[in-house]
């Protein structure tokens, strides 16, 4: 990074530190924070979409659809989510390869499960064996995001179906009396009003999602935890920047990062709640109306 960093063994004190903290690997570490934020930014809307679909299915008039919706929301309860994270990623990976195998190699004679091994034909490997490393990494991250969205979607579905039930019935009846169809009532009356009821639950889930991101490390994504362990571990004199075991300090940085994220989210969500309550027939909305009057 800096010109004077060419020979680290000659440096000491702050200059050493400034060089140490600007090595290529440290920039990977800093980027991994961006990775975590990106994954959050992708996962949160995806989970919301899954949840919305689940909540709609759970209140559908068509019985099989309703059963699917209810099963989906009930699925995650009672089972530690870490099991879901570990299970789904492998199951999904093998499932995709199995389907590809059926499509691309219909003449393959050997069984796929040979004792302890899961073997599909080379053409069915996803991503393809010859694909560059970056494709493998993106595929892995994609699987992780999908799993996160699926698991959190179940919780979101729970919150949203509660919120949909909380919208005053009179509001919907008013819509109906104006001659709106079921779909119109849903789109124009129910959905815009349910958010104020859903927000406390959703902000809770956001906090939980935020705190679940270190689990990406378990799914093999090179996230902040990976780099903290990698960089913090003791480095012998064979390395450019030898140092003892500094993992404690790296994890302290992660701790501060997560605490800061929590604090910022708390402030933002409180503001959002106040905004959404404006003009609503809730205690909060009523308090705002009185304060203004």
């Amino acid at each position: 990074m800096f010109a004077y960093c060419s020979d680290p063994s000659q440096l000491d004190g702050l200059t050493w530190l400034s060089c140490y903290l600007t090595t290529g690997k440290h920039f990977d570490f800093y980027w991994s924070f961006v990775t975590v934020l990106t994954l959050l930014a992708v996962t949160a809307p995806a989970a919301l979409a899954f949840g919305f679909a689940g909540a709609m299915a759970a209140r559908a008039p068509f019985l099989p659809l309703r059963v699917i919706g209810k099963t989906y929301t009930a699925m995650v309860r009672g089972i530690p989510d870490i099991i879901f994270f570990l299970f789904f990623v492998i199951a999904l990976d093998q499932g995709i390869e199995w389907i590809m195998h059926q499509v691309r190699c219909p003449d393959w004679s050997e069984p796929i499960r040979q004792g302890l091994e899961f073997r599909v034909c080379p053409e069915a490997k996803v991503p393809h064996g010859s694909a560059p490393q970056s494709v493998h990494r993106i595929y892995g991250a994609g699987l992780a995001v999908f799993t996160f969205a699926l698991v959190f979607g179940a919780f979101v579905a729970n919150v949203l179906s509660g919120a949909m039930a909380a919208v005053p019935r009179a509001q919907l009846e008013t819509g109906e009396s104006y001659g709106m169809s079921q779909g119109q009532v849903f789109r124009r009356i129910l959905v815009p009003q349910m958010w104020v009821y859903a927000l406390p639950g959703l902000s809770n889930l956001w906090m939980i999602l935020l705190k679940a991101t270190p689990l990406l490390f378990l799914l093999g994504v090179q996230d902040v935890v990976y780099w903290a362990r990698e960089l913090g571990g003791a480095k012998t004199s064979a390395f450019e920047y030898p140092h003892p075991d500094w993992r404690l300090w790296y994890f302290l940085v992660l701790l501060v990062f997560y605490l800061a994220m929590t604090k910022v989210s708390e402030i933002f969500l409180t503001r959002l709640q106040r905004r959404l309550s404006h003009g609503q027939a809730t205690a909060d909305g009523e308090a705002q109306r009185r304060a203004a009057a």
């Binding site: 679940a212 270190p214 490390f217 935890v225 994890f251 997560y258 605490l259």
Partner: peptide
């Protein structure tokens, strides 16, 4: 309360282990 509710348990485990090993 903020310290333990605001950070992931996963990180708390790591941190505690690294601190206790020292």
């Amino acid at each position: 309360i903020f310290l333990f509710r605001g950070s992931p348990l996963f990180i708390q485990f790591f941190l505690a282990y690294e601190a206790l090993v020292l």
